[in-house]
Computed example of a mutant assay.
Amino acid sequence: MKIAIVQDGLMCRAGGEQVALCFHKAFPLAPIYTQCYQPNLTFSEFADCDIRPSWLQKFARTDNQMKALFFPLGIWAMQSQDLREYDVVLMSSTHCAKYVKVRDDALVINYCHTPFRLAWDPQSYAQYNDSSGLKRKLFNFVVKILRQVDFEYAQRPDYFLANTEETAERARVNYGAVHPVVIYPPVNSKNFYVGPRKEYFLVVSRLEYYKRIDLVVEAFNQLGYQLIVVGKGVQADEIKATAKANITFLSGLSADELADIYANCRAFIFPQHEDYGITPLEANAAGRPVIAYRAGGVLSTQIPVTDNPAKATALFFDNQNVNDLISAVRKFEVIEDSFDPIFIRNHAEAYDEDIFINKIRSFVNEKFAQHVER
């Protein structure tokens, strides 16, 4: 079985990159094809992998540049990646990993993090919502083309895997995927530890519109509590400009520094509707509870507070607004000492990457054996 791995891009440290790294651990001899790769921007473990970026690598040195060049250069770059020598192509994809060339008789497995957000949910981007007139017409034209391309290439995989039941349903609706199989993404529990609690709350996220970090900043501006925000993104300058002195912004942390930040926070704040969301589980791996918007992946991965906080991992709020988040933080203060860090840590270990790697390896091997028989 000659196998290749494909990842949209290796330009940041996020969930898709973590999944691709686990694919490598499951199949360590498989090369990883990708749009662009910058070692200093993503997980250091990729330095030991056989990474094969597209020609777009010559022009995109940052994640934002790669995104800006996506239409049409990024599409063409991934379409030029020729993987027809491989029997199995295993994709970690939100968008362009699906666009590579594959043999007609190859086994193609697409692990879907979510259908391409710009094509299928453009309203989740501030740039789209802020556009009007001719700019909005141009945006709609681009979205129409992206949707056509994305749908076309989504018909090639033989199997769809999905990170949550919600993503599986989106793949069925948007792509016509038949019976997507849900395998929850991993958290690398051994990278985190339970430590002493300090006086700050924590956000770890890309600073993008749909992540709603602006909501957290406004809430903590009013609360006056210490907040640390770890991450960067296109909305960074805008968000930082509104933050008061009680809010600290960090980025480019090492794995050890990030583990320390998680271990010492009071709670992790998760305001977005995320398809899955690995960061809440990372907080859990550090024994810390999560204050989360009641939507998306956290409904599958977190145990909400009911009568006994000692048997819970998260406190949910129902409306994605400042007032509800403030109310949730104040409710959390009342029950904060009742959460059990060891229980929370043990919960995260059920999603450990070793479990994920074994499930992926078993799925690929089983489907390839069936594929050969046919």
Score class of each variant (00 low, 15 high):
Q81K: 08
R147Y: 07
H347Q: 00
A348L: 05
F363E: 07
V100W: 14
A68T: 15
A154F: 03
Q7N: 10
I5V: 12
Q155C: 03
I326N: 13
Q155S: 05
Y184Q: 08
I360D: 03
Q38H: 05
M78G: 08
G195N: 09
I269A: 15
K359V: 14
G252D: 07
Y200A: 10
W76E: 12
Q272K: 11
R156M: 14
R61H: 07
A47M: 13
G297F: 00
T279P: 14
N64S: 10
A14Q: 08
G277I: 02
N174G: 08
A126R: 10
K367H: 08
N365L: 07
V6A: 12
N321P: 10
T306R: 11
P304Y: 00
L29C: 11
E353N: 11
L227F: 01
Y184E: 02
L90R: 04
A236P: 04
V322R: 11
E373N: 01
N110I: 08
A14N: 13
Q18F: 09
Y200K: 11
P122I: 02
A14G: 15
H347F: 01
F268H: 06
A4D: 04
H371K: 06
F59E: 07
I228W: 07
R136Y: 00
G15C: 02
V89N: 05
S300G: 03
V203W: 09
R374F: 15
P53Q: 02
T279Q: 06
L215C: 09
D337G: 04
T313F: 01
N188F: 15
S132W: 07
K135C: 04
K144P: 04
A245N: 15
E17V: 06
E199H: 12
E333P: 05
F116Q: 13
A267K: 03
K144N: 08
N246T: 14
N321C: 13
E218C: 10
D260K: 13
D105T: 01
C265R: 06
G287L: 01
T42Q: 09
D8T: 06
F332A: 09
F363A: 04
A47Y: 11
G74Q: 13
A171G: 12
I335E: 03
L138I: 13
Q123H: 12
D50S: 03
